[in-house]
Measured scan of single mutants.
Amino acid sequence: YTAFGDLEVFLHGLGLEHMTDLLKERDITLRHLLTMREDEFTKNGITSKDQQKILAALKELQ
């Protein structure tokens, strides 16, 4: 049995499950992801397509 964390649930909701391992390897938490700047997305290997999905979701949360 494995409990999913906030990061996994957030990514799954956006259809971005493939990013879970990448972000965990880089010790990026959901809190960090929510406050990242555009250059940090790129530096951490997050594609512009995935970045757009994340940023759109963040706008909806605000």
Rank of each mutant, 00 (worst) to 15 (best):
A56F: 09
M19S: 05
Y1T: 10
H32V: 07
I46E: 02
H32S: 12
S48M: 11
A57H: 13
R26Y: 01
L22A: 12
S48Y: 10
E17K: 05
Q62H: 04
T42Y: 09
K53L: 06
I46C: 04
G45N: 09
Q52A: 12
F10A: 05
L34I: 13
T47N: 11
L23D: 01
G5I: 05
M19E: 00
L16Q: 02
M19T: 05
K49G: 10
A57D: 05
R37A: 09
L55P: 04
L61H: 15
N44Y: 10
L11K: 00
A3H: 11
D50K: 01
T35I: 03
Y1E: 15
D39R: 06
A57L: 03
L16V: 06
L16P: 03
H18T: 05
T29A: 03
G45M: 03
G13H: 11
R26E: 05
L61Y: 07
S48N: 12
S48L: 13
Q51K: 13
D21I: 06
L11V: 02
M36S: 00
L16A: 04
D50S: 04
K49I: 07
T20Q: 11
R26T: 01
N44L: 15
L55M: 12
M19P: 03
E17P: 06
L58R: 15
T47H: 10
L58P: 14
Y1K: 12
T2W: 03
Q62V: 04
F4R: 13
M19D: 01
A57P: 08
E40Q: 06
Q62C: 10
K59W: 07
F4N: 12
L33I: 06
D6T: 06
M36N: 00
K24F: 06
H12C: 11
A56H: 10
H12R: 15
L33H: 00
L55Q: 14
Q51H: 09
A3P: 13
L11H: 00
Q62E: 05
E8V: 03
T2C: 07
E38T: 09
L30T: 06
T29S: 08
L11M: 05
D39K: 10
T42L: 10
G13E: 12
T20N: 07
H18Q: 05
K49F: 06
D39P: 10
H32T: 11
H32F: 01
L33W: 02
V9N: 15
L61V: 13
G45Y: 02
I28S: 02
I54M: 12
Q52E: 11
L55W: 07
L23V: 04
D21C: 09
E38G: 08
